[in-house]
Simulated scan of single mutants.
Amino acid sequence: MSEIINLKNKINDILKKKIKEFQLKNIVIDIVKNNKNEYYLILEKEKYLASLIIAEPIFAPYKNICFEVYRVSDEKIILFYYDNENTTLQQNVEQIDKMLDKFIEIN
């Protein structure tokens, strides 16, 4: 199984576990792209947006994962996570889980 598909499956498991938290905080999830090479979703809440990209970029500051949280009022990235060549699958899963928790709790 490719690393992209593996990551996507693990992230989907995390999202399923957090679905009630998303509902309680009025977070909307929009899956923009979902195929074997790319997975792109956007999470929206009142004052913030988050984007999660799992892909093999041509040129980017990450290897396979880009997670960014934006404050809508000034369009600034306030939290982010990018993996790199040395990041393991387990580290990526743990970091995305933590980032999703931060996004859920941010006001």
Rank of each mutant, 00 (worst) to 15 (best):
L24R: 15
N64Q: 05
E44D: 09
F22T: 01
Y81F: 09
D74P: 02
N12Q: 10
L43F: 04
K8P: 01
L15A: 06
N64D: 05
Y39C: 00
V28I: 15
S73Y: 08
E68P: 00
E44R: 12
N35Q: 06
Y82P: 00
K18F: 06
L43C: 06
Y48E: 02
K63D: 14
I58R: 15
N26R: 11
K47P: 08
E46D: 11
S2T: 13
P57K: 08
L79E: 14
D13L: 07
E68V: 07
K76C: 06
Y40G: 04
L89D: 12
I54C: 00
N26Q: 12
I5H: 06
E38T: 13
L24H: 10
N9H: 10
I14K: 04
Y48Q: 01
F59V: 14
F22K: 02
L7V: 00
K33Y: 13
Y70N: 03
N6A: 13
I96V: 07
Y81N: 03
Q90M: 14
V32K: 09
I29P: 02
K102R: 13
T87H: 08
C66G: 08
E56H: 11
I29S: 14
N26G: 07
I19K: 13
D30E: 11
M1E: 07
K18H: 15
A50Q: 04
Y40N: 13
D74S: 03
C66V: 13
D101P: 08
I4N: 03
E38C: 15
I11A: 01
K76P: 01
I78V: 06
N12P: 08
Q95E: 12
N92T: 03
E68K: 11
I104P: 02
E105I: 12
V93Q: 05
I5W: 03
I11R: 00
K33M: 15
K33N: 12
E21Q: 12
I11W: 00
I5Y: 05
K45P: 05
N84H: 10
F22W: 04
T87E: 11
D74Q: 02
I31A: 06
S2M: 10
T88H: 07
E75L: 07
I5R: 10
F59G: 14
I27A: 02
N86W: 15
Y39D: 00
R71D: 04
K17P: 09
I96H: 01
Q90G: 06
L43S: 03
K76A: 04
N37S: 10
K10T: 01
D30K: 15
I27N: 02
K36T: 11
K17L: 11
Q91L: 12
Q90N: 15
N64A: 03
I78H: 01
Y82H: 07
F67V: 01
K45N: 14
V69T: 04
T87S: 13
I5D: 04
N34L: 03
L24G: 09
F59L: 15
I106H: 04
F22S: 02
